[in-house]
């Protein structure tokens, strides 16, 4: 297997297996460390804590533990161990997860771009995840499944609370709410954090919720959710989110580029990408409500 790149925020230490998926193997730190390091195969993109291997790294799923030192990565299977020395990785590069926001984008432009994102989500993901919140008709449509029905009622109520001066209670209610490995509410809050990061330089930040507080409210025993909040609050992004931010802050992104980027995000999980985009869209469109008195 070929290591293509590694994230810029991988901490040295020993890691044990946490969870195995088709293209992602998650490891968690030993000795009480709760951070996650992931071995992934393309097309899963870079992230601050990802080691990205080529698509044909079929033996990746047999890795049971991982050691990261200053100079190398050691992947251990039950029978063998494979070392990747950072210095020897000719083609392999460090993925830089930070991203400086452009200085010249405006609120109008962001609103314009987010409108296009909304259109794309409504057109192609109208029945997925929280996308019903973007459309009044589907929002009112009743669900026959009792869990779905109660979920819709709760999530709508918590989102209304989130877009109010009582946003902390709203965030608490959304945390861990809904289907999915990273529940829909978590993905929504992640999208909202990204929106607040985008809004901060172009409006009065005092009128916006604090992203650290949202992330604290959202913390749970779900290490995968915690991990995505942790990195995003530090403004360290996955390759996919970096691209999304780039497109949203572009003065005039082409429709093709924007749609391509949105489609990639919507492909994330079953509904995770859609839920994240719904959080992002609504947070930009309903930003004024964070200041309304109830």
């Amino acid at each position: 297997m070929r290591l293509l790149s590694y994230g810029d925020s991988l901490e040295t230490g020993s890691y044990k297996l946490h969870s195995t998926f088709k293209n992602v193997i998650n490891f968690t730190g030993l000795g009480g460390k709760k951070d996650i390091v992931s071995l992934v195969k393309t097309p899963i993109t870079d992230a601050p804590n990802h080691l990205v291997f080529d698509y044909f790294a079929s033996d990746l799923t047999s890795v049971t533990s991982l050691i990261i030192t200053d100079h190398q990565f050691i992947a251990k299977t039950s029978r063998t161990q494979i070392s990747f020395a950072k210095a020897d990785c000719d083609d392999c590069k460090t993925y830089v997860s930070t991203f400086e926001l452009p200085k010249n984008y405006t609120l109008e432009q962001l609103e314009h771009n987010i409108q296009s994102v909304k259109k794309q989500v409504c057109a192609y993901s109208q029945d997925a995840g929280l996308s019903f919140l973007l459309d009044n008709k589907t929002k009112q449509a009743a669900s026959t499944n009792p869990f779905e029905r109660e979920f819709k009622i709760k999530v709508t109520k918590d989102i209304d609370k989130f877009f109010s001066p009582h946003w902390i209670q709203g965030a608490q209610g959304l945390r861990g709410c809904g289907p999915g490995l990273t529940p829909s509410g978590d993905d929504f809050l992640l999208g909202s954090i990204i929106a607040i990061i985008l809004l901060t330089p172009i409006m009065d930040s005092a009128k916006l919720p604090e992203i650290n507080v949202i992330a604290d409210m959202a913390k749970s025993d779900n290490l995968i959710s915690n991990n995505m909040f942790f990195w995003t609050v530090q403004k360290k992004y996955t390759g996919m989110i970096k691209q999304l931010i780039q497109v949203l802050t572009d003065i005039n992104p082409t429709t093709k580029k924007l749609n391509q980027c949105v489609n990639e995000v919507t492909n994330l999980g079953s509904t995770s990408g859609v839920d994240l985009l719904v959080g992002l869209i609504l947070s930009i469109q309903r930003r004024h409500q964070w200041q309304l008195k109830q």
Binding site: P146, F147, R175, G176, P183
Partner: peptide, 11 residues
Amino acid sequence: NSAVVMATTEN
């Protein structure tokens, strides 16, 4: 009627 969800307090 069924549900397949993570066992969070909210769920």
